[in-house]
């Protein structure tokens, strides 16, 4: 009989067994009427079930697009190549979109990785910190500040996704596939997502507005954000962009760099 393993050795071997990297741990298991490997298999199935269920919860639209059988097989490959790194299951699966992008079987579904990104960002938005939005009156005050001195702090739940595909259109179609046939015209979509009460709101915006919000989220001042947006569309007007952000409660602070308020 092999020598008793130290706890570290035992746990390393056990994890290897659960990740399909070898069955050395079986020699330490008391079979008690069963093959030790059969007892380890109970845990392997339990781990697979838990992690696959977590991916199903996080990626419902990907599941709808590829179907049960493919999703299960993909989840199995993904979890073995990218084991969970956190005791909190909500964190598992953040790199699935990148994994999908490398899968030859779904190369024809060029949009699938972006649909996965959208599913994941919905979860990020849902779990983001709370924050109190500024009032419309504060928006009016901010309009008096010179744009090169004005920065805005956006709501932590606001997420962005730029896609070469009609990712939000596809997402909505997946939710109601019995509706009108999906017509994709080959244009990409710029999507904003944010928490709205108990749900996650999503909308597409024009590329210049998206670029402006991206710059503001990166901490650039209003003048700079308008400049980069104008490089996308020289007719860009920041007024509707700011108005919509305010109306949706997505601005939590205006910062006047000079006064520090």
């Amino acid at each position: 009989m092999p020598a008793a393993p130290r706890l570290r050795e035992l746990q390393r071997g056990f994890v290897d067994a659960l990740l399909g990297r070898g069955d050395a741990a079986a020699t330490w298991v008391d079979g008690a009427g069963l093959e030790p490997s059969a007892r380890l298999r109970i845990y392997r199935h339990a781990v697979a079930g838990t992690l696959t269920a977590a991916l199903r919860d996080s990626y419902p639209t990907v599941l709808a697009l590829v179907g049960e059988a493919f999703f299960e097989a993909m989840a199995e490959r993904y979890r073995l190549q990218h084991p969970s790194t956190c005791g909190n299951l909500q964190q598992f699966g953040g790199s699935l979109a990148g994994f999908i992008a490398t899968m030859p079987e779904v190369r024809a579904l060029g949009y699938l990785a972006d649909v996965a990104r959208l599913d994941w960002l919905r979860q990020v938005a849902a779990l983001a910190p709370d924050a109190v939005s500024v009032s419309a009156a504060m928006g009016a005050d901010a309009a008096a500040v010179a744009p090169d001195r004005l920065r805005v702090r956006l709501h932590p739940s606001l997420q962005r996704l730029r896609s070469d595909h009609a990712v939000l259109t596809i997402w909505h179609w997946c939710r109601m596939p019995d509706g009108p046939a999906l017509k994709l015209e080959g244009n990409g979509e710029h999507v904003l997502l944010w928490r709205d009460g108990g749900d996650v709101a999503m909308t597409t915006v024009d590329p210049a507005t998206f670029r402006c919000i991206e710059a503001l989220a990166d901490g650039r001042d209003m003048a700079s954000a308008c400049r980069v947006a104008s490089e996308v569309d020289d007719g860009f007007d920041p007024e509707p962009c700011l108005r919509d952000l305010l109306a949706q409660g997505l601005i939590v602070a205006f910062i006047d760099e000079e006064s520090g308020t």
Binding site: A4, R6, L7, R8, L10, Q11, R12, F14, V15, L18, L19, W28, Y43, A46, V47, T50, L51, A54, P83, S84, T85, C86, G87, L89, F92
Partner: peptide, 25 residues
């Protein structure tokens, strides 16, 4: 129980060996 080793989390309640070493830990 335990559930992770070497940064890989199994997200499962895995059994400990009932040893003095595991107890002390």
């Amino acid at each position: 129980c335990w559930g992770a080793f070497g940064g890989a989390h199994m997200n499962e309640l895995l059994p400990l060996p009932f040893t003095e070493e595991a107890l002390a830990l």
